[in-house]
C-alpha cells in the first residue's frame, strides 16, 4: 500500500515537472515558431537559440509584485490562477505515455480528464468576475459560453471512441489500437465509418477548449484588451499562461490516445514513449501554426459552429456508431 502511494507521489511530482517544463518550453517554441512564420528571429539572445528565455521570463514574473486591483474580489482573484493550473497538472496523472509510463492508470481516465478540463472554465469565470473589470467580465462570459458549447461535441466524440474501443481506460484504448497505423481510431472502420470526421471535430474542440486562436475570444486582445487576465500581473499571469500550455499538452495527448494510437508506432515496430511524444508535438506544432495563420472568429460564428454544425454531426456519428456496433 505504502509503496503504491510513494509510486503515485513520485509520479505526480514527475507529472508536475513535465507540465511545467512543457509549459515553459512551449512558450519558447511558440515564440520561435511564430517568429519563423513571420520572418523574424524571435528570442535568440539568452543562451543558445534563446533557450534560456523561459527560465529568465519565469524569474522576472516571480520577482514582480502581485497587484490586486482595488474593489476586486480578493479570494476569487487569488484562487483563479491556481484553479487554472491545478486541473491541468492533475490530468497528467492519468495519461499513459507508454505501456509502463503512467502515474496512475484509472479505469475511468477519459471521464476524469473531462471532469478536470471543465474546471478550467471556472478559473476563467472567477478571474473575470474577481478582477472587477468590464473587459474581464465580458471575456470570461464569452470564454465560459465557449467552453460549455465545445465540451458537448468533444464529449460526444469521445463517447464514440469509448464505444468503439469498449473502455474508458486510456491505456486500454491505446492498446486496442496497437499494431500499425491502420488500426488507429482516426481511420474509418466497419463499426464507425465517420472516424476521420470525429477526429477533426475533436481537434477543433480541443482548440476551442484551450482558448487558442482562432477561438481565443476569452482574451481577444484587440477588443477586450487582454480578456480575463487583463488585471493579472506577476505569477498570477504566469500561472494562467502555464495553465494554457499545460492544457494544450493535455489536449494533444488526449487526441493522440483517442485517435492516433497513443504510443503505437505507425508501422507496428518499436512502440514506445518516443512515438507518443512525437505525435503530441506534431499536434502542438499544428496548434501553433494555426494560431499564427488565422484571424479570430466572432462569438456568434463560434457558437454557431458548435451548436449548428459540430453537435449535430457528432450526435449523428454517435447514433450511427451505436447502430453499427449492434449490427457487426
Amino acid at each position: 500500500m505504502s509503496l503504491t502511494l510513494l509510486n503515485v507521489i513520485v509520479a505526480v511530482v514527475i507529472a508536475i515537472a513535465f507540465a511545467a517544463a512543457n509549459a515553459a518550453y512551449l512558450v519558447w517554441a511558440e515564440r520561435r515558431g511564430a517568429a519563423r512564420i513571420q520572418r523574424r528571429p524571435g528570442p535568440n539572445i539568452n543562451g543558445p537559440f534563446g533557450l534560456l528565455q523561459p527560465p529568465l521570463d519565469g524569474i522576472k514574473l516571480m520577482t514582480k509584485q502581485l497587484m490586486i486591483p482595488g474593489g476586486a474580489d480578493k479570494i476569487l482573484f487569488m484562487v483563479a490562477p491556481v484553479l487554472a493550473m491545478a486541473p491541468a497538472i492533475m490530468s497528467f496523472v492519468t495519461i499513459p505515455f507508454s505501456e509502463g509510463i503512467a502515474a496512475h492508470n484509472m479505469e475511468i481516465g477519459v471521464l476524469m480528464i473531462f471532469a478536470f478540463a471543465s474546471m478550467g472554465a471556472m478559473a476563467i469565470l472567477f478571474a473575470g468576475w474577481g478582477s472587477r473589470n468590464k473587459y474581464s467580465v465580458m471575456a470570461s462570459v464569452r470564454a465560459v459560453s465557449q467552453n460549455v458549447s465545445y465540451e458537448i461535441p468533444m464529449l460526444i466524440t469521445a463517447i464514440t471512441v469509448v464505444m468503439v474501443n469498449g473502455s474508458m481506460d486510456l491505456k486500454a484504448i491505446s492498446t486496442a489500437q496497437a499494431g500499425g497505423f491502420w488500426h488507429w481510431n482516426i481511420f474509418p472502420s466497419l463499426q464507425s465509418p465517420l472516424m476521420p470526421i470525429s477526429f477533426i471535430i475533436f481537434f477543433i474542440c480541443s482548440l476551442a477548449e484551450t482558448n487558442r486562436a482562432p477561438f481565443d475570444l476569452g482574451e481577444a486582445e484587440s477588443e477586450l484588451v487582454a480578456g480575463f487576465h487583463t488585471e493579472y500581473g506577476s505569477m498570477g499571469f504566469g500561472l494562467f499562461f502555464m495553465g494554457e500550455y499545460a492544457n494544450i499538452v493535455i489536449g494533444a495527448s488526449l487526441t493522440t490516445i483517442l485517435f492516433l494510437g497513443g504510443w503505437d508506432c505507425p508501422f507496428g515496430m518499436f512502440p514506445g514513449v518516443w512515438w507518443f511524444l512525437l505525435k503530441i508535438y506534431i499536434l502542438i506544432a499544428t496548434f501553433i501554426w494555426i494560431r499564427w495563420t488565422f484571424p479570430r472568429t466572432t462569438i456568434y460564428g463560434l457558437l454557431n459552429l458548435s451548436w449548428k454544425i459540430l453537435i449535430p454531426i457528432s450526435l449523428f456519428n454517435l447514433l450511427l456508431t451505436a447502430g453499427l456496433l449492434k449490427v457487426f
Binding site: A34, Q38, D216, S222, T293, P295, R296
Partner: peptide, 16 residues
C-alpha cells in the same frame, strides 16, 4: 487591420 481581427502574421509581412 488584420491584427485587429486577431491575425498577427500579416502585419509582419506588410511591414517588411
Amino acid at each position: 487591420f488584420v491584427m485587429d481581427l486577431g491575425g498577427f502574421s500579416p502585419l509582419m509581412y506588410a511591414i517588411q
